[in-house]
Nucleic acid binder design. Structure first.
Lengths: 246, 246
DNA sequence: CGCGATTTGTGCACGCCTTCACAAGCGCCT
DNA sequence: AGGCGCTTGTGAAGGCGTGCACAAATCGCG
């Protein structure tokens, strides 16, 4: 630790220090820390302890300290972490100081909501282009953008400097869209379609499946109901399945 | 993620179909397997090998076999798994044979999309009630439902048998909504608001934060860019990356 | 100036999950 | 009927992540 001189030069987005290879689990939590830090900053806090930040982010304080230590953290023993400094640090690590350009493909039900979701804009992203394959949608205005045909994706990616693509199409179209995105040079994809995407190495795909989250909750409901099934209740189920054999 | 309590209660009388306490990681993958199995069933496949199903679900075949073995699996050596049987098994485990009733709170931008998302209906859920605290929204029709005021939540939960609540409100309102849901008897919550929810033990919370997913992708983009920091990239960056000092 | 209170950073142990590799089981073909 | 090939189910090993507990470091105060 403390081997890397961080200029922490504000306003300079180009100084590239050694890139710590953070554990995936840590990376997945950094955005949560960042959000909590923004909240703290708004309330005027100058510093925050690991305990306080951990509570705000909903994690264990030891875990938080270890996470922050991985990115060569800037805490002061006996005091805590400097909120503003930590915000800059995490935003830099996450590459959010560039306000990345995002392309959204599929302006159906979900796509509409995503296009209008201000949570993207407020957290480091700009949706700069909307695409659809449906001729009826093409040309329609949506917010400040106009829906373009997916054939224009290649040129748009270059012109707008797009690095991330969001797929909000039906499952059947998702793979083709992914192929188009990859061909256009996009190397990160956020997939809302309920299907598995096949992409070449070097392209990152993250999947968000709304129904899956509900199904996981459903499992826990089912489990909870089966544990409290003694006082006969509504858990009368059609016995379509027998007890597990074995 | 949320606080998790492990049942593993000892004296589970044999009446209830033994509920295998599956690893969380396995549970999270079951919905994916289920989706892949439905696809296979549509193509007319009677059976599928672990290799084939694993490919369709985007996982390792050994992992899939171990997952299925946990639920006392129904495979036949030398042949594979019976698709229809496995679908029934997983749907039962996930509690999807009950078509769970879901309440959606917050019919703003995202809520609208969720209310119209047919992926819920097609995968075991019924959104049976919409709520909002905005008087302007209350009374408006949305699909086949009418937006109700959040005060009616308590009665609706009982009347409709709601077990899962979905929060699609701004972050500022989410905790209050969560409290209302818990007070109404809901024991599972899917939270789309970017904030940490505090709920009593026994209530499961899963969180979906769309911006976080993008931020994780952004990190990988940043990392990739820093590794291929060849001068003359698409963004004119001073490529002064130095080797790690350690 | 030194001491105590406070908080970070981290070594270590434990448990979960993944992956490999292989024995056991099943159907088919001869 | 018997052997052979295919596939499942699982024991074991390794890796990763988590959480505890404590040493190190810093500030404030007498």
């Amino acid at each position: 630790m403390s081997q890397q001189r961080h200029g922490s030069t504000p306003g300079n987005a180009g100084a590239v220090p050694a890139f710590p290879d953070l554990p995936e689990a840590t990376i997945a939590r950094l955005p949560e820390y960042l959000r909590a830090l923004h909240n703290l900053a708004e309330t005027g806090s100058e510093t925050v302890s690991s305990e306080g930040l951990a509570a705000a982010a909903g994690v264990n304080s030891a875990k938080l300290r270890k996470d922050l230590s991985h990115l060569g953290s800037y805490g002061t023993r006996g005091v805590g972490y400097d909120v503003a400094l930590l915000v800059d640090q995490i935003e830099y690590i996450l590459g959010l100081d560039q306000r990345r350009a995002v392309a959204l493909v599929g302006v159906g039900n979900l796509g509409h909501a995503l296009a209008g979701y201000d949570g993207f804009a407020s957290r480091g992203f700009r949706i700069v282009a909307l695409f659809d394959s449906d001729a009826e949608q093409v040309g329609k205005p949506l917010g400040e953008l106009t829906v373009r045909h997916i054939d224009e994706l290649g040129t748009a990616v270059i012109e707008e400097g797009i690095t991330i693509g969001v797929i909000a199409t039906p499952a059947g179209a998702a793979q083709a869209v992914a192929d188009d995105l990859v061909a256009a040079g996009v190397t990160s994809i956020l997939n809302f379609a309920p299907c598995v995407l096949s992409v070449p190495a070097g392209v990152d795909v993250r999947k968000v499946d709304l129904a899956i989250e509900l199904q996981i909750l459903s499992f826990h409901e089912h489990r909870k109901a089966s544990l409290t099934a003694i006082p006969g209740g509504r858990s009368a189920q059609p016995g379509n399945q027998e007890a597990v054999g074995s």
